[in-house]
Design a binder for these strands. Structure first.
Lengths: 392, 392
DNA sequence: GGTGATCCTGCAAAGGTTTGCAGTGAAGTA
DNA sequence: TACTTCACTGCAAACCTTTGCAGGATCACC
């Protein structure tokens, strides 16, 4: 404890007196139901009464107890957001977008981190279930069947995972991986590695599938390395393996791993992009700050957060839980629509990719060190990046 | 909407039938109170009954309704964590540490982001107040008096802000700023800028105070620039101003700003550390990944998160809110102890600082580009960084 | 057989709010 | 004046759980 210094003082302080609807009723001389209506259905109460009640409430510092309200209405006006790893810069923009969207609709967002642990994930859904009106599951690591099961406990919207029967928000990483591979093949790379992420990641499987197909189509060989932790450490740990594999280019599961890999290669004396090209996925802020600046597949994280919240709230207003008249006998099926939204991705070419062993000697490399125009693929570079938009 | 692709299907699915303690009671042929006790005081119920009840509960998929429980016990077993900006890499380690500490004590953490907005902050405290047992306020942007006022509504622990009468967890940025300035002075800098952060930040005031004193003591001149947004953008936006000010070294409010500043200076053709030295604060992961690697004041974020949770839970177990026997007449003062903990900081010297105009020519600069040993100040470099530990 | 202790369980109130229903008084209409 | 309509307000049940109190059964012991 040599590192800390503690000061302690004791003080007498007024206890927090919880002021309830009763106190307001007493103070303003009306029944509690009138006070209740003043807040939840103002048009039903006489304007004069209303102002009086509001004044008293303000005076006493009354705040409706949301827990008690939720108990009877069945809606908490909270939504839960379960995230694999807050420390991954991929998520904060998603979180912020979700929060601002929710706030506009008078909902609050509770964020929880699972440390990439499926068990923690399940536990959190249970814990959140009764305290929120719905849960956003971002990049879940549990099984599809478990997710389906949990969805009977609380409305769920899944991000970065396809679960049939549930609303999903997906990013077209398949298209992204294809663009990346085509970009690399176009640069003259014929031996490419895919640096995989977590085994249970939908994104991971999707990338693998698409990258494999694209490599085959382009006459290149794809080596799959992994699974790895989707972190900087996971990336740098794989550097040795990448060198030994003898590939001239790598597509990493995400930017964090790509950056870690570049660090690792650097430590081994392998230069990027001169000896090995590296492409990431996500386009996190950081990818513009490292040297070399990272070529990456940009994913629309903000849009994903907003869309997911919209879908959850829509589903939610359609079928309120705990509705008053719903007797046990009426527990028939509820008709509900589930949509799956696929968001497009864009290849952003920066400085971590360069010509490979089979490059045509004509075209000189044109990747200046200047300010980054954040150019999506296409303009000037003839990859098929913006080809046939989105598949199903 | 050309960027998205939507698939919609409709399905009939069993509605989520909320199973309550009643259902379990009926199924297992006991009174609801026995079921309740089975969960909250198992030693009070006959082992045979217990297993039967548990079996039924398991069967029906019963989960206690935490909201209803909270209504009567007055404790939710949740704590709230209010953060100025989740996108700032400074916070995730703190969040993770807080979560894991809370989990060990059977508490859940709800994180909320305020976007550096004091109004959102206040609103969030209100919204959280009745749904959590206490709130951790991290780097708050509201006024001390408002914080004190809010603390009467819900137990509060404040991080990175000193509020008398409230438990606080502070990082000794004063000491950090002093070490940084001494380091710079030692390198021969006599004209130094402090790139300030948000006006309402306690850290900001503290750094300003300490840096001013240290500069005076070292015979250097300190120019204060700001306030600025504590982000990468805030830093790069200040580059021009820094150049015009003619200083040879800058201490930035945090790493994000330092990195932004380096980018900005780079764009202006000013080299770091050859022409200008830059020091950050926080030691976020990113600071090891940029080029040049950042010299920075490391703050113990994980320890802060853990300590804050401990303090909150301790204060909380001492004086449970909404206790049964507490009539309105008994609302006398509650004796409560509030501690203030000061956590030590460390200067980490990397590659963004170099000799200044008044450097003694003898000592050559020894800062190789190799792997970063994460050396805290002291070893080999005669600054007063590890001088008189912590002040009061 | 009586006494007391021990163990388990049921009863019912409580916590803060919402809401269907019924009741009040006043205004409007014939 | 009698009747309808309307706007407003009060009553009380309901949401799901916890918990102090008391009752019933069992057992040991004298």
């Amino acid at each position: 404890m040599g590192h800390t210094h503690v000061t302690a003082t004791t003080s007498d302080e007024g206890a927090a007196v919880p002021v309830t609807i009763r106190d307001v009723a007493r103070a303003s001389g009306v029944h509690i139901s009138t006070v209740s209506r003043t807040f939840s259905a103002p048009h039903l109460v006489n304007p004069e009464t209303r102002v009086r009640v509001l004044a008293c409430a303000e005076d006493l510092g009354y705040r409706p107890n949301r827990a008690a309200r939720a108990l009877i209405t069945g809606r908490t006006h909270n939504i839960g957001l379960i995230i694999a790893d807050i420390a991954n810069p991929f998520f904060p923009p998603l979180i912020k977008a979700a929060e601002s969207q929710a706030r506009h609709r008078d909902y609050h967002v509770f964020v929880a981190d699972t440390n990439e642990d499926p068990t923690a994930e399940e536990e959190l859904v249970h814990a959140l279930a009764k305290q929120v009106d719905g849960v956003l599951l971002c990049s879940p690591r549990m099984s599809n069947s478990l997710i389906e099961q949990l969805s009977r406990e609380v409305p769920l919207v899944v991000v970065n995972r396809q679960v049939t029967g549930l609303p999903c928000v997906l990013m077209d990483v398949g298209q992204g991986a294809r663009s990346a591979i085509e970009h690399l093949v176009g640069l003259g790379h014929r031996s490419i590695a895919l640096l995989g992420g977590p085994r249970s990641s939908w994104t991971n499987r999707e990338m693998r599938r698409a990258a494999g197909a694209a490599a085959r189509a382009g006459g290149a060989e794809l080596t799959v390395l992994g699974p790895n932790a989707p972190t900087e450490t996971g990336g740098s740990a794989a550097a040795e393996q990448v060198r030994r594999s003898g590939v001239s280019a790598v597509l990493a599961y995400n930017d964090l791993m790509a950056i870690g890999l570049i660090e690792g290669l650097d430590a081994l004396g392998v230069r990027v992009p001169q000896e090995v090209s590296v492409v990431g996925v996500d386009d996190i802020t950081l990818s513009r700050l490292t040297r070399p600046k990272l070529t990456t597949v940009a994913t629309p994280t903000g849009a994903a957060g907003r869309t997911a919240v919209d879908m959850l709230l829509q589903q939610d207003t359609e079928s309120p839980r705990g509705a008053r008249g719903l007797g046990a006998g009426t527990a028939l099926g509820v008709r509900r629509t589930t949509a799956q939204v696929m968001l497009q991705t864009d290849l952003v070419i920066r400085d971590s990719t360069g010509p490979g062993p089979h490059a045509r000697p004509a075209r000189p490399l044109a990747a200046p060190q200047g300010p980054d125009p954040h150019c999506p693929a296409g303009p000037g570079i003839p990859t098929a990046a913006t080809g046939d938009a989105v598949a199903s």
